[in-house]
Every structure is written in C-alpha cells, then in structure tokens.
Design a protein around this nucleic acid. Structure first.
Length: 859
DNA sequence: GGGTTTC
DNA sequence: GAAACCCAACGCCGG
DNA sequence: CCGGCG
C-alpha cells in the first residue's frame, strides 16, 4: 500500500522481496484472528472476546434493544490477558439507544443483537485505545426465540460453540472497510511506543530555531502548489504522493480540536474520527496541514466517497459514516507544535518532526516522501491509480501562499470511448464543436455518458467526423446518464446540464464499432464525466463493448477491487403468504428467482413499482414507488421528476436476478412497470388494452380479445396477450418506441371504441363499474407517462397465487382459467414452452403510420 | 419489511 | 421502550 | 368541489 509510508515502493525499486498481498486474512475457529498492519506487515492476535453483562435482546414488536449493562468488551491477548474496551457509538439510530456495537453479518453491518436465526459468527468492530479494530469472531449462537405472554420476544443465547465455523470472508468491496485506515493491528506496547517518541520531538523542537509563537489555525494561510505537467528530479527536492481529497488543517489546543478546509470552513463535527484521534494525540497543542481522504476497498483515496461523506449533516449519519467510510488525514506538514511556529524551518525538518509525532496507524497518517528519482516515482504513482505526485523543495519554508517550491504533477490518462453524438461548430470551427462520448458498462449492459471532448482535432478529422456522424443521426441519446447520484437521466442528457446552463443544439448518433476514439484526460469527475479531455485519434478496431471505464490508468486491472457482490439476505422465508395454499414468502422468492430470466426483458431499464404485502395476501398492503433508502447500493435506481408536480421519485430498476430477489424479499408480490424504458421514457414499447370483466362472463373477455386480434390483423399490426392474473386479459400492441404516450393512448382509445361498436352487448369503455351493465370494460387509459402495467410474470395477491402469464393466441379460447397459471405451474410451463409468446411485443417494429392509416379507413 | 417518529 | 406511522398518483366520472 | 375508481 502506498499510503502512510513508502516501504512498498522502496522495496519494489530495490528489487527486494515483493510485499505481502494486502487483504489476506485468515481465521480459525475459536476467535483467533489476524489483523493486518499497514505497509504489508501483519501482526497476529489471539483475541477472545467476551461480553460483560448479559445480552438482553429482542423486544416487541420488532427491533433489537440492548441491555444497558453491555458496555464493555473483554479483549484477551497473549500479553494482556484481559483488556477492556469501551464501545463507541457506531450504530444506526433506532430502538437501541446510544452505544452499542455492530457486527458484520451476511454482507452488511447489523447491530450485534439483531437476532439473525442461526447466526454463528460475524465481524466485529470496536475501539481499543482510540484505535478501531475489527476482526472475525465467534461469540455465541442463537438457540431460539421465545415469545412471552405479553407478545414480546426473547432471543436465547448459548455460549460459544467450539465447533462453530467462522464466517466466510465477504468479498463485498462496497462495504468492505479499507484495509489500513481503521485497523491498527498494533499491540498495546506498540501503541505506547508511539507515544514515547513525543518527548524526543518536544526536546528537539525546543532546541531548534522555531520561534515561540502561537499559530492561529483558523486564519493560517496555506501553502499552495503550482501545477506542472512534467515530472522531474532535482537535488534537494522531495516527492510525495498526491492524495485525491480535500485540503484540511487539523489543530489541537489544550483539550479542544479544530478541523478546517482550505477556505476556512469549520468541519470539526464532520470528521469525528479525525477529531478523536487528534484529541488523543499526546501533545499539548499542534497544527497539522494535510489532505483528508476516504479510502476505497482497495486502499486508494476515493474522491466520490469523500464527497458523499462531506455532504452529511445529521450527527447520526456522520457517526455512522465515521465507521463505515472512515476518513484518513494524510498530513504532510507540521505547522505548529506546542507553542512553536515551525513555518520558518525547512520543510525536511518540519516533516522529520511530523513523522515522529503521528502514530504509525489510525486515521492520522504521515505522508511520507522519497528524495530522488521524481520521474520514476511519478510513473509508479500513476500506475497505482493515484492522482499524481507532489514535488517540494526540501529546504523551503512554509510561506503560506502559492509557491514554486511546491509543484503538483497530475496523472494523465487515456481511454477509448464510443462516440454517441456531437454539437455544432461555433465561430470559425468547421464540422463539429465537440463529440459526445460514452463508455460501455457491463453491469448496465449499455453505454453510459462520459462527457464531451472539444479539442485535439485537426480540420480534416473534424470534417470527416461531421460527415460520418450526420449520416447516423438519431433522436434520443443512445446512452444513459452517468451516475445514480448525479442528475436524473433526462436532465443529465439535456443540453442545459451538458453545457453548464447554456443551450446548444445536440445531435445524437447511433453508436458503432467504427465510431470509437481514443481520448486523453486528467480524471473522472464524481458525476462520471471526463475532466480536461483531449481527442487523440479515431480507432475503428475496437468494439464499443471494449470501451469500458478503467479507473486505474494502465496495468492495474488485475488488482481492481471486485465489483460489489450482489448478495441478498432472505428473511422470514417460511412466513405463510397464501394461507389457503400454504405458499410462503420463500415460495414467492423462489418463483421470482426461477422465472427471472424470462421476466427480465420486461423489467430491464423500466421504473418499477411494487405492491407490498409484508404479512401475506390477507394482511395490510401498500404501494411503493420510491425505493427505500436502505436498499443496497448495487440495486439500480433512477430519480425521475414528475413533469406536472415537479416531485422526484426514485424508482427501483430491476436489472438482474438479484434485484428481483431483493424486491421479492421485501414482500413485493405485484410488480408494476412503466411501458417505456429509461433511455426513451417518452416513447412506450407497447400499447396496453386491459380487458376487465368485473361481473361479465370470462367468455366475453375472450371474445373481445379475439376481436381485437382480428382488428389488429386487418390493419397489419401484431398483437400479443397475457393474463392479467386476476380476472381479465391484457392485450399488448408493439409500438417499437416509435410513438409518444399520447399517440399510444389514442391508438388504444380508437381500437377500444371500434370494438365497443362491434360488440356493443359485451364491451364498454365506461369507467364507472355500476354503469357497465355487466359488460367487459376495455381500459385504454393506462397508456400514459408514469402509468403502470402489471409486469408479465408478476404474481397476484389472490388465492391460488395466479401469475400474469404470456399466452399464445391459440390458448385464448373457452376453458381458459387464469388460476391455472400460478406460482406453481408457470415455471414448468416456461420450461416446456421454451419461448415466451409475448416477447415479440418488445422486438417487433411495426409500421405504425400504415396501421393507423388502415385503421382510419375502417372507421 | 424496515426504518422513523411519536407517545 | 414500545406503539404508531409511512410507504402513489392522477385524470375522470357522476353527484 | 368532492369522493370513488382504476
């Protein structure tokens, strides 16, 4: 790991043994675990963790509660048979008071006492001597639950089971804590050693030339660097890593600490972990200058993580984030120490003291340097995926302004991008103004917008590109908005957003393997756009699927953190949801898991709405459009703004089987989807005619469905049919995304009215049920923005657990019974059928104009 | 079903 | 500490 | 203008 010290780098340079791989940790039964230390050294612990006090556990109606006695952990190490550690509050707000511990279980942090049946082990995080430790432990297992007469539940605990297996290491990179910043891995002795060196520093600074003078951290003018684009080596200069974070001044005076950004903003409350570490530093007063970062699972600074961190307001969020996304301050300068102003001292002397003041682990880190070979160091830093390096004059004083004695060198990166559009030229520019670029995202299965490049072209290239692109125009952007946190899809791809408020003409083009270009750029912005892009060349030898975003510039693919594992924890599998049949929640989940492949085309890229039945089909239920906050990060969401009310809804978008299983586990029995997909929300894929019999005989539904089919056949428009699952049929007409909602609705209305005229005895478009006179209601109103269709393969909350099932037209005949297609039968049917009779509604490209012309001739 | 607010 | 609460929306109809 | 409907 490159942070904190440069041992790994130095070793590599001198061709010594390669560092041990980070992230490896072995665990054995009985609570033995290994904690890594930074810089490729590992320290082995034998910890036995015991609870002092009793774990009370679960209270009515749900949600854990903690017995106030449980305040301390007993930690046994080899040298120290028993050390007690106080808990630090690090749990979500809720029914369990302040001060508890959280554990790692089934891929997420949960309060320790959360009664996960059968839980045998987990990961544990606690603080000892101001350092956060974590490890895998085996503590106790659940023996069962008991319900008392007043309805409260109690969780019975057993002593640790000697045979209990330790939990698997989780590979979930998202929730994985960065390996270094929170782990100390230090023995108590080592921690004390770190403190002993303070006396040395104190005496040294007292004897130095540093004047006795207070430095006010609030008004301290900061040293700033000048930029350069070429790394260099100079005698007397030193080279540090450049961290991708915010500049931060950290100060302690007496008992109080103070953290500020470059421009002075007080952020003491935002980084409690830094404040704590600073408070515990065994010095009377100190002022540090550095860069605050939040590391990703691979130990690299993640600007995006830091940004989300910096947006937090509520104390609970901050406290939680300080554990889950802990900040690390890489301090590169010591400005003041116990009443001495160190700014007149040479940089190397300041850093020498700094190195000895800061502990070798924890959230406050010394930003080390090397003293030569700046070019090679820069290359290495870039290869490690870091932002760049800093070059500093080792003899320079801290002058508190922008200075040529500090130089920043930023990494440049190159990448291949699909061309998805262009803007028109301004002024004397020929051909085009800029190219719109996109990268392929395998998780999404499509292109994601990456920003624009407007420089680096020669006139010939401009002209050629403009000509080739003009021939491939399309109306809608062929790509998605870049980030879930960023602007909504539509807004992100709108002119206003792209051009920072200016409106210009955009042309979107059909992407192609031959429209790929290589671009040099500085970095990715948090919103997933390119910063400082320069066009290098066209390359026609690269399929767009290979235009993937590489966050590591060159040669780091092998060590990229694994993509977040999509794990779903199933709860209450055996809860009965359909009492008549005895079908359980587990059956529901199994069903959706089994048919997910067939269902996916109707879910992919479509905003999803759920009807949830947490207590089964006879319990209370509710609609839910907004995805709950607690949904895992890997679950795709999209924020859409209602054009009418301006209100935002953040919909789920089910892109894969795990998402479907997650949603099913929320007891979402019915899944409703939009008829249109994200990249063209204004153009539906199908027109829906909902045949709702109410009191009418089902035979009439069949007759009407067949009449619609005949009518569509006459106008040369295909039609498809599925059961609604409850009592009627859904007839779907393919639109191929070629018309608007209004046109779709008009088409539906026209067809419905024609059918009503044909079959006035059995069909009606009257919305009021009482006035339908026992006729079948043909509902065409569900064609509109935000209007929903019960998704094909959605289960219904009715006896027999019927499923909205795609049918072949030959099956639409007397004798058809909707309940025959249910949670039990549909998976088998799917296997037998091999093809989905409804799929054509998504794939066919009808000639709508011709169909409408024929239809108008009929009326 | 899970999180938040009120009592 | 436990119970209550929240979880959509919009046009259209007749009264 | 309101409540019910889907």
């Amino acid at each position: 790991m490159p942070h904190g010290n440069l041992d790994a780098y130095r070793r590599k340079r001198s061709s010594e043994a390669t560092p041990e791989p980070m992230g490896s940790r072995t665990t054995a039964a009985g609570g033995r675990f290994v904690v890594q230390k930074h810089a490729a050294r590992r320290v082995h612990f034998d910890l036995r963790l015991e609870l002092e006090g009793t774990l009370k556990s679960w209270a009515v109606p749900r949600g854990p509660s903690l017995d106030p006695d449980v305040k301390r952990l007993a930690v046994a190490t080899e040298d120290h048979p028993l050390e007690y550690a106080d808990f630090e509050g690090s749990i979500p707000a809720g029914n369990y008071g302040a001060g508890a511990m959280i554990v790692w279980d089934s891929g997420r942090w949960v309060p320790l006492e959360d009664p996960v049946a059968g839980m045998e082990s987990g990961k544990l995080l606690f603080e000892l001597h101001g350092y956060k430790l974590r490890g895998v432990w085996t503590l106790f297992r659940t023996a069962g639950r008991r319900r008392s007469s007043d309805g409260s539940q109690w969780l019975l605990m057993k002593k640790p089971d000697a045979a209990a297996r330790p939990s698997e290491e989780s590979g979930d990179a998202e929730d994985e804590l960065p390996p270094e910043s929170v782990l100390s891995g230090l023995t108590v002795e080592e921690l004390r050693d770190g403190c002993d060196r303070i006396e040395e520093v104190r005496a040294g600074i007292e004897a130095s030339d540093a004047p006795r003078r207070r430095v006010d951290p609030r008004s301290l003018p900061l040293m700033l660097a000048t930029a350069s684009d070429r790394p260099f080596s100079r005698a007397g200069w030193i080279y540090e890593l450049k961290y991708d974070g915010y500049r931060l001044v950290a100060a302690k005076e007496g008992g109080s600490v103070f953290l500020r950004y470059r421009r002075g903003g007080d952020v003491t409350a935002l980084y409690p972990e830094l404040a704590r570490a600073l408070r515990r530093l065994p010095v009377e007063s100190i002022v540090l200058d550095g860069e605050v970062t939040v590391l990703d699972g691979g130990g690299r600074p993640s600007f995006a993580r830091l940004q989300t961190r910096a947006l937090l307001n509520r104390p609970v969020d901050i406290e939680q984030a300080s554990v889950r996304r802990p900040a690390t301050l890489f301090a590169f300068d010591l400005v003041s120490f116990e009443g001495h102003d160190l700014r007149p001292l040479p940089l190397l002397e300041r850093k020498g003291w700094l190195a000895r003041v800061l502990p070798p682990a924890g959230p406050l880190r010394y930003s080390d340097h090397i003293e030569e070979r700046g070019e090679e160091f820069f290359e290495q830093a870039v290869a490690m995926g870091l932002e760049g390096t800093m070059a500093k004059d080792g003899a320079s004083r801290y002058t508190g302004r922008r200075s040529s004695s500090w130089v920043k060198l930023r990494a440049e990166r190159t990448g291949d991008f699909a061309i998805v559009g262009m803007s028109s030229p301004k002024g004397s520019r020929v051909g085009l103004g800029s190219l719109h670029l996109a990268v392929w995202d395998a998780a999404v299965g499509g292109l994601v917008y990456a920003g624009r490049v407007g420089t680096g072209f020669d006139d010939a290239t401009l002209a050629e590109l403009a000509e080739r692109l003009s021939a491939r125009r399309r109306k809608e952007p062929p790509c998605w908005a870049p980030s879930a946190e960023g602007p909504a899809v539509e807004a992100a791809l709108s002119d206003a957003h792209l051009l920072g408020g200016r409106v210009a003409d955009q042309t979107w083009v059909e992407p192609d393997d031959e429209l790929v270009c290589e671009v040099r750029f500085k970095e990715w912005t948090p919103h997933g756009l390119l910063r400082h892009p320069v066009f290098l060349r066209l390359r026609d030898d690269k399929p767009i699927e290979d235009c993937v975003r590489r966050d590591e510039p060159r040669g780091r693919e092998a060590t990229l953190p694994a993509p977040p594992e999509r794990r779903v924890e199933i709860t209450n599998k055996s809860k009965v949801f359909w009492p008549d049949e005895g079908y359980t929640k587990g059956d529901l989940i199994d069903f959706y898991a089994a048919i997910s492949e067939a269902m996916q085309p109707y879910l992919t890229d479509r905003p999803l709405v759920m009807t949830r039945y947490p207590d089964g089909i006879e319990g209370k239920s509710f609609f839910q459009k907004n995805a709950p906050d607690f949904a895992p990060d890997w679950l795709h969401k999209v924020r859409l703004t209602s054009p009418r009310t301006g209100k935002d809804i953040e919909y789920f978008v089910c892109q894969n089987r795990e998402s479907l299983v997650y949603v099913a586990n929320l007891a979402a029995i019915v899944l409703h989807v939009w008829s249109s997909r994200l990249h063209q929300l204004g153009q539906p894929d199908w027109c829906i005619l909902d045949l709702d019999p109410k009191d009418a005989p089902f035979e009439d539904v069949i007759e009407i469905a067949l009449a619609i089919r005949r009518l569509c056949h006459k106008i040369k428009l295909s039609s498809f049919v599925k059961t609604s699952g409850s009592s009627g049929l859904h007839v779907l007409l393919p639109l191929g995304g070629a018309c608007t909602w209004e046109q779709s609705r008009s088409l539906g209305q026209l067809i419905a009215q024609i059918i009503c005229r044909q079959l006035p005895e059995i069909a009606t478009v009257t919305r009021n049920p009482e006035r339908r006179g026992g006729k079948v209601y043909i509902d065409f109103v569900q064609n509109g923005r935000g209007r929903l269709l019960v998704a094909p393969f959605s289960v219904r909350p009715l006896p027999a657990a019927p499923v909205s099932t795609p049918l072949r037209w030959s099956e639409v005949k007397p004798g058809l019974d909707l309940r025959d297609h249910n949670i039990r039968t549909v998976p088998e049917r799917l296997k037998k059928l091999k093809t989905d009779p409804l799929r054509g509604v998504l794939t066919e490209q009808p000639d709508l104009l011709a169909a409408l012309r024929r239809l108008s001739e009929l009326v």
